[in-house]
Simulated assay, not measured.
Amino acid sequence: MNSLLKKLEGGLIVSCQALENEPLHGSTIMSKMAIAAQEGAAAGIRANSPADIKAIKQAVDLPVIGLYKKIYQDSDIYITPTMKEIGEVVEAGADIIAFDATFRVRPGGQQLDEFVKEIQSIFPSTLLMADVATVEEGLHAVSLGCDLVSTTLAGYTPYTEHVTAFDKKLLSILVEKSGCPVVAEGRVNTPGLAAECIRAGAFAVVVGSAITRPQEITKQFTKEISAEK
């Protein structure tokens, strides 16, 4: 196994992301969030945008899974959607590139197979993490040569809207059938659930909102308190 992947195996990957409309947005804040994650024994960081990736790489010595969220009018895909974003994530120093590997059409009408082949041709030594929503998408990503598969998008596509909690079934089937490291991600919101994912065979677990989005954590507390009134 790649030595970089060995550093992530069995560990917690903390997603340090804040969009422009969120109070913690900014590479300085995200780099400090990554430092805090490292101090808490995180195995890796997942980060969005070249600026954040660069700052985090300078701040910590953990593997960084990089992505770049961009909106295109002709596609619903926004996680590292085109080769332009792929190039910028690589240039920023990401150790692994995460991208939407669903079957949806990419910007410009590009299909997934063509997109992955282009990445592999231009950046042959870069590890690829396929963010998927279904078993079929995960298995197809593995057949294309992706290095990791993540359950990131389960519940976040029109055809998986029925998924409102972490998709344990998706994880277990991918672990059983893919023959590839499977990362548990998407609504992993408690330490107990993270540990359960590892017991179920997850290669690693990504946690974001439950650690790095205080506004969402606060909402959970206030909702519970309000229910008692």
Rank of each mutant, 00 (worst) to 15 (best):
S49K: 06
K117W: 12
L8N: 02
E22G: 05
Q73W: 15
K117F: 11
A98N: 00
F103G: 11
I53D: 03
I56L: 15
G87M: 04
S27R: 04
Q110H: 09
M33C: 06
A42E: 02
V105A: 02
I96R: 12
E88M: 13
M33L: 15
Y68W: 11
L62H: 09
T102Y: 03
R106M: 05
N21I: 07
V64G: 07
I65K: 10
G26K: 09
F103K: 07
D74H: 10
A98R: 01
L24P: 10
I97N: 10
D100Y: 03
S15L: 02
D113N: 15
P50G: 08
A18D: 07
A36N: 13
K54E: 15
A59I: 00
I65V: 13
T102A: 13
K117A: 00
G109W: 01
C16K: 04
T102H: 06
P63T: 15
G11N: 05
K84R: 11
A36H: 12
T28I: 15
S75R: 00
E114F: 12
D61N: 11
S49Q: 05
A92R: 11
G26S: 05
L19D: 14
R104I: 07
K70M: 05
V89T: 10
I29H: 11
P107I: 02
K57M: 14
A43P: 02
E22M: 13
G66S: 06
V105Y: 09
I86F: 14
D52T: 12
A92L: 13
L112T: 01
G66K: 05
I65F: 14
V116H: 02
A42I: 09
E88L: 14
P50T: 10
D52C: 09
K84W: 03
T28H: 14
V64F: 12
E20A: 13
G87F: 08
Q17I: 04
D113W: 15
G10N: 08
E20K: 14
A101F: 04
L62I: 09
N48E: 02
A43R: 09
V64E: 05
L19A: 15
N21C: 07
E39H: 14
G109C: 04
V14T: 08
Q111P: 10
K7Y: 03
